[in-house]
């Protein structure tokens, strides 16, 4: 079953005098992601990988094309109707240090999405947060620390736990391991793969490390200058 299907997606940026300078960040991209599968997106810096991700999530307004998620066209959704979408698809960024609020304890950071999306009532909250931290193989002791007290690998797990709290169907992983060293990278990737098997999550996996993408993904699209130039 197709979870996400993207057709002729374009995102142009305009700048300069009278907005006459056109930058074609994404220039006609088509792909589909099946349920429970992982698709890899590789390419050099600046080829438009991250723009694709952000446009699919509707963090950016697409210039042209359509994005269909679970049979529903989400290209034109606006305002409040976008909020339920946040529960279905989530993104993990490259740098976990800047993804978490530095003045919020890990516990509160994990609680926040649960409250925003009203996923459980107040007496279940505590248990839910403790379950989440367990899912990503972290010790409960860490819940009452601040982000600066944790290592990069631990923070990336917290970010993953936070994303998982919403039970998303699609996770976009944008260079999740490029700042981490090999051992921690293998821990994080094994965790993601395990979650895919256990929970049937689909991934759009963005990276510039071909080896990692080959290990992680079923299909791989190679991007260059805003277009998909090759499938593997």
């Amino acid at each position: 079953m197709t979870l996400l299907s993207v057709t002729n997606l374009k995102k142009y940026h305009y700048s300069g005098f009278l907005n006459r300078k056109e930058i074609r960040a994404v220039d006609g991209v088509d792909f589909e992601i099946e349920k429970g599968k992982a698709m890899g997106l590789v390419g050099n810096s600046g080829c438009g990988k991250t723009t694709v991700a952000r446009t699919v999530l509707r963090l950016l307004e697409p210039t042209e094309g359509s994005i269909v998620f679970e049979g529903k066209d989400i290209t034109k959704l606006k305002g409040r109707s976008l909020k339920p979408l946040g529960r279905q698809m989530q993104i993990i960024f490259q740098n976990p240090e800047s993804s978490l609020n530095p003045v919020m304890r890990i516990y509160d950071a994990l609680l926040e999405p649960l409250r925003i999306h009203k996923l459980c009532n107040s007496h279940e909250e505590d248990q839910k947060v403790r379950d989440l931290i367990g899912t990503v193989n972290l010790n409960e002791e860490l819940l009452f620390r601040y982000p600066h007290e944790l290592s990069g690998g631990q923070l990336q797990r917290v970010v993953i736990a936070r994303v998982l709290s919403l039970n998303p169907k699609l996770i976009i992983a944008d260079e999740v391991t490029s700042m981490l060293d090999p051992l921690v990278q293998s821990q994080i990737l094994n965790l993601l793969k395990d979650l895919q098997k256990r929970l049937g999550i689909s991934y759009l996996f963005i990276s510039h490390d071909m080896d990692v993408v080959e290990w992680m993904c079923d299909d791989i699209a190679v991007m260059d200058k805003g277009k998909i130039v090759k499938w593997k």
Partner: peptide
């Protein structure tokens, strides 16, 4: 362990933190 953790060597991971 460090060499085995590379993606082309099977991405085996070892539990625990340094």
């Amino acid at each position: 362990v460090l060499l085995g953790s590379l993606p082309n060597k099977g991405l085996r991971s070892v539990p625990g933190e340094s």
